[in-house]
């Protein structure tokens, strides 16, 4: 999966905006949006919010978790715990990037938030690598991927799957005759 595909999925997340125009309810396949009234906050998907923002038709209200204090708390917790801690949003990385790139003027302390999220990401990726390594060394058969986000899984997916594949084949060497009779057809 390409990171841009993950980003595409993230654009379905809902974010609050304050429009500066008025429009009746819009009926879309994905659900009804609006009505839009100047000054009244309304929930819309991220793709629409970014589009309106680019045309300067709204102000984006950052999500609750996109706040320096809350993120600092999360970073400390993430560093302290050995396991993955729950993330505020399944698309925290993508949303941070999208919102900060397009609407950094609506988000207070945008630079600090960017650094904090990157810190959290780095900690989690280091943990992910550590757990992948222990998964391989202990020759485990299954693992629980609690609290991991799609983007995190996506960065390591091809590598981990290929190595597990190799390891499976090297392991099946241990039992002679087990790999007999199965071959792939091209």
């Amino acid at each position: 999966m390409d990171p841009s595909e993950v980003e595409f999925l993230a654009e379905k997340e809902v974010v609050k905006i304050i429009p500066n125009f008025s429009l009746d309810k819009v009926y879309l396949i994905g659900g009804d949006l609006g009505p839009f009234n100047p000054g009244l906050p309304v929930d819309v998907p991220v793709w629409l919010a970014l589009n309106l923002k680019q045309r300067q038709k709204c102000r984006i209200v950052p999500p609750d978790w996109m706040d320096v204090e809350k993120l600092e708390e999360m970073r400390e917790l993430e560093r302290k715990e050995n396991t993955f801690t729950p993330v505020p949003s399944p698309y925290y990385m993508e949303l941070t990037k999208l919102l900060l790139n397009h609407a950094s003027d609506n988000i207070p302390k945008a630079d600090e938030i960017r650094t904090l999220v990157k810190d959290i990401w780095d900690t989690r990726i280091a943990k992910l690598r550590l757990s992948a390594d222990s998964f391989i060394t202990q020759q485990e058969a299954h693992a629980k991927l609690d609290n991991l986000t799609l983007m995190e899984i996506n960065t390591i997916r091809t590598f981990l799957l290929d190595s597990l594949n190799c390891m499976y084949k090297l392991r099946s060497n241990l039992q002679p005759g087990s790999s007999k009779g199965q071959f792939t057809d091209y």
């Binding site: 690598r129 390594d133 060394t137 390591i156 590598f159 190595s163 090297l170 392991r171 060497n173």
Partner: peptide
């Protein structure tokens, strides 16, 4: 063979990532 692969896995992973 299996143990060699497992032993070298961490280094391959870290350097590639």
């Amino acid at each position: 063979l299996l143990q060699t692969f497992i032993g070298r896995f961490r280094r391959t992973m870290d350097s590639s990532q």
